[in-house]
């Protein structure tokens, strides 16, 4: 059994005028510890794929199993719990809350957890240190550079130690040098065993992935491994 199993996944958007097939039939198995890049031109279904993976958008057909949990057989409130416990999101354009400090933004996924505030702070500080921002705890997002904001967003995704990180165009609004820095950070996290699925249309990010799936018109056009997984070899 793989870490994630996607079977026969399809998504159709219906409107009065016409029907748009966003995803055709996707079958995919993703192993624990992989760094999967999902690429493709705009309109190829990347974002829809990520929304469905994140439990935010109900598929029209098929199913997704994460550690054997059938995501869309959970109630919507249970799926919220699933997101909190199993997923870390890194959104396009960071999506930090403007009136919360870096530390508070990182603590967001813990806000509804019943653990002492002291412990929440310790966890947040730990991941902020991991992404190299321990000196920026009390800064508001608008006092941080683009790269720093991205790091805060990554720290927020890491704070609840989720088995899976979903990243949506994380380098979309960064310059080349900062993009490389951020991709390097993702790679480091992956090498520490973190499973990551990243959606991007930027070819420069491709060398960082150990597996790349290219979508075209909602279907998998290419599925290639760049480097064999160390874990897989050992197995």
């Amino acid at each position: 059994m793989s870490f994630i199993e996607i079977e026969n996944l399809g998504k159709t958007f219906c409107s009065d005028a016409d029907t748009v097939v966003a995803l055709g039939q996707i079958d995919l198995k993703i192993e624990d510890g992989s760094f999967l890049g999902v690429m493709g031109p705009s309109g190829s279904g990347k974002s829809t794929f990520l929304s469905i993976m994140g439990g935010l958008c109900h598929p029209s057909e098929g199913k997704i199993l994460v550690e054997e949990i059938d995501l869309y057989r959970l109630s919507s409130e249970k799926r919220a719990d699933f997101r909190r416990e199993y997923l870390g999101f890194v959104f396009q354009s960071f999506n930090l809350i403007p009136y919360l400090t870096a530390q508070e933004n990182v603590m967001l996924p813990l806000a509804v957890k019943k653990i002492p505030v002291k412990q929440k702070k310790a966890l947040a500080n730990q991941v902020l240190e991991r992404v190299g921002l321990s000196h920026r705890l009390t800064h508001l997002p608008n006092q941080l550079s683009g790269g720093e904001q991205e790091r805060v967003a990554i720290a927020r995704a890491l704070v609840n130690s989720p088995p899976l990180i979903l990243a949506d165009e994380p380098t979309g609004s960064l310059d080349t040098a900062t993009s490389q820095e951020i991709m390097g950070l993702f790679q480091e996290l992956n090498e520490e065993g973190q499973t990551i699925i990243m959606v991007t249309h930027n070819d420069e990010n491709r060398p960082y992935f150990d597996r790349t799936v290219i979508l075209r018109d909602g279907n998998i056009a290419e599925d290639s491994n760049r480097r064999p997984k160390v874990v897989a070899q050992a197995g």
Binding site: S76, A80, R83, R84, E85, L108, P109
Partner: peptide
Amino acid sequence: IFRALGFRRG
């Protein structure tokens, strides 16, 4: 964002 990060409707 709150919902994506795991806040329930409640």
